[in-house]
Computed example of a mutant assay.
Amino acid sequence: MKKTMVFAHRGASGTHPENTMEAFIAAEAMEADGIELDVQLSADGEIVVIHDRKVNRTTNKKGHVKHYTLRELKKMDASYMWKHLNRKHYIPTLVEVFDWLCTNTLICNVEFKSNKSNSLELENKVVQLVRDYQLEDRIIFSSFNHYSIVHCHQIAPEIETAPLYSENIFMPWVYAESIGAKGIHPKWGVISEQAIRATEENGISVRPYTVNRERDLQRLFSYQCTAVITDFPALAVKLRDKKY
């Protein structure tokens, strides 16, 4: 029986400040198989790990990520909403995450936070960084902007790509194949057991996001999908390991 992998969404974000090194390190300690994170560029062109286009929700400052330099972003408290923590946590760079990945065997799903009109500078820089660290076989590129991952596939076909989507797609494996993707990352509630099995039978990995409730995790484990992406990796690993 195939064992479904567990990916920690923005790290162990259900119990730690999202997209921080602490959340990623916690996911490893919880025996997750991989992590998921989001990347953007700072004002001075550095690759930083943060989800929203603005810093308002996850830090103690306000404004667009792209308007701050790395030095300014590094001064922000990325854990200010977590009042019980005894120290501040910060926005990491992708370099910091990759340095850490070199100490373990986790898979890393990199989500591009970009739009159709961007210059593809972010994608080009991330591809080069993956190659510099020789992490090609441990990285998955995903995005809701499918132009972004198609570009990545064109310039780096050795790195897996997987489109993110939140609405049902008819025969998703056909769409994945049409853009050179080896996986799909659907919202957990929009893909059926039949579609999961058919997609995987056609050689395309299926990793639904963001699966947090016990009953939904159990359902997807029973379908034996490739992986689940969850805010609560400890719970997912516990439920998964009881099943297999």
Rank of each mutant, 00 (worst) to 15 (best):
R213D: 06
E201V: 03
Y165K: 11
S178H: 08
I196E: 01
G183D: 09
R215P: 01
I139A: 07
S192D: 07
F221W: 07
L164Y: 08
T226A: 04
R138K: 06
A195G: 06
A156I: 02
E200T: 10
K238Y: 15
W188T: 05
V237P: 09
D216H: 02
E201G: 04
N168F: 10
G183A: 15
P163A: 15
S222V: 08
H185W: 03
I159M: 06
K187H: 06
V190K: 08
I196F: 05
R197D: 04
L135D: 05
I139D: 02
I229V: 15
A181P: 09
N202D: 07
I159Q: 03
A234F: 00
D241Q: 09
S192E: 08
R219G: 03
K238N: 13
W188S: 06
E136C: 15
R207S: 10
I149H: 12
K243W: 00
I204P: 06
A181D: 06
L235Q: 10
E214H: 00
L235C: 01
E214S: 03
R219N: 00
D231W: 00
R240E: 14
C225F: 00
D137F: 08
S143G: 07
Y133A: 04
G183N: 11
S192F: 04
K243R: 15
M171A: 15
I229W: 01
